[in-house]
Write a protein that binds this DNA or RNA. Structure first.
Lengths: 230, 230
DNA sequence: TTGAATAACGTTTTTTTTACATTTTTTTTT
DNA sequence: AAAAAAAAATGTAAAAAAAACGTTATTCAA
């Protein structure tokens, strides 16, 4: 490993990547294999150490790309987790020992979240990931390290932004109907919304534009399509 | 230095401590002396490296206490700055060389902000701070490292919270008038507010309570005092 | 007692948010 | 061709929140 790409030993980034499919909010998780003596896999958020001369924002993009092939998407730092005991279970310790020079070093992690159109992405596992797959957010297993806490915080931030119409559209395909957008909002916020009021509020957002085009291949009146202009 | 209190080489915390006095928003800065061959001092935000087995939130509290004697105050992480070139000026490099084993290591910093009642605090400089003093936010000199950028971000966060009546009261003495609170808001938001509407909005906040007491020693009709219940 | 300084206070207007039901368009079925 | 099924599209009235706006009252000092 050259001087330039030395890993920092104690700074990592973790990415919480949300997607939406079949009316469920999903998050992208990787699975890593435990050591020989340990059966089963451990789910984790995609994340990895930062290079010593790398901007952390860039590290987040890089790691996300390496582990998931996603590039050029909305990616935002939302919190830094710095409990020295955040890597404390025996399982996590064992795994770290298998890949680290100094497994006892504390690691702080800077967490990012991003929203992706699932249609644009086919997960492909990387180096230490055995699998990379979308998991329903309402059915998350126990994750490595403090990743459950990181995910919870990310959800909080996501709900906040969606409630204020700041983001959310990025989760849908390029062309979407207002019905689909409303379903997305309802899943994220976990409550019913009034259809007419919802449409009024969306029409105020000037990054969402109506297209001269209608939904196709549907068993009822096709809806007008809209698009999000980043 | 014992094993337990080893410094991490590449993680620091910086604290943006706001105060309010004489109708100006202030921020607490320290001054450190440059090396013998360099004249003049450099202003900086109070900040320092994190111990290797210390929670970063705790480190922020500790550093703030060490450098300013402030304890037990509102302290919130707001952003992590991770540009490897954030310590790039010649001056900063020189200074780092004088106190660090490995001056080339990149340092990421987790930034916190806090609001304090200036009346409760008399700055007292610590180890590497020659002075610790309140500076008018609208008249900030060039700061060490990327501290000007950190301060700008902190101001952005502060304005956001104040605009939503989330915080701000912590900057005033224990007992304050609505007039003083309004002046504080006007300085932070840099705009005039309507007195009656302002009072209405404050009366909705249930952490602000009217006292059975009036302002004293003032050359006009004394105002009712209010207090903030954390 | 008067003047100076600021406190205290309520109403109207405008804007935003919420609540709520019917008609229209298209596809599939008979 | 008509009917049924499914979701799309639409507007208005009421309530709540935010914004605009001026006068009177209290205290101190001279």
């Amino acid at each position: 490993m050259s001087e330039q790409v030395q890993l920092n030993l104690d700074i990592s980034v973790d990415c919480v990547v949300f997607g939406f499919h079949e009316n469920k909010l999903r998050v992208l998780l990787i699975e890593r294999e435990q050591n020989s003596d340990e059966k089963g896999c451990v789910y984790a958020l995609p994340g990895d150490l930062v290079f010593s001369q790398e901007h952390i924002d860039h590290a987040a993009e890089r790691v996300l790309f390496e582990l998931t092939n996603l590039k050029g998407i909305y990616l935002e730092q939302f919190h830094t987790f710095g409990d020295p005991k955040r890597v404390s279970t025996e399982k996590d310790q064992k795994w770290l020992k298998s890949i680290r020079k100094d497994p006892n070093a504390r690691v702080i992690t800077i967490a990012y979240f991003s929203l992706v159109k699932m249609e644009d992405y086919v997960p492909s596992p990387s180096s230490f990931a055995e699998r990379a797959e979308w998991k329903d957010v309402s059915d998350i297993p126990q994750l490595a390290f403090d990743h459950n806490a990181i995910l919870d915080k990310a959800l909080e931030v996501l709900r906040n932004k969606v409630a204020n119409n700041k983001i959310g559209f990025e989760l849908l395909p390029e062309k979407f109907t207002l019905g689909q957008l409303q379903q997305l909002y309802e899943v994220i916020l976990d409550k019913q919304l009034d259809k007419r009021n919802f449409r009024k509020s969306i029409k105020k957002i000037d990054t969402i534009k109506a297209l001269e085009e209608k939904q196709k291949g549907v068993l009822h009146k096709p809806a007008q399509l809209f698009t999000y202009i980043g």
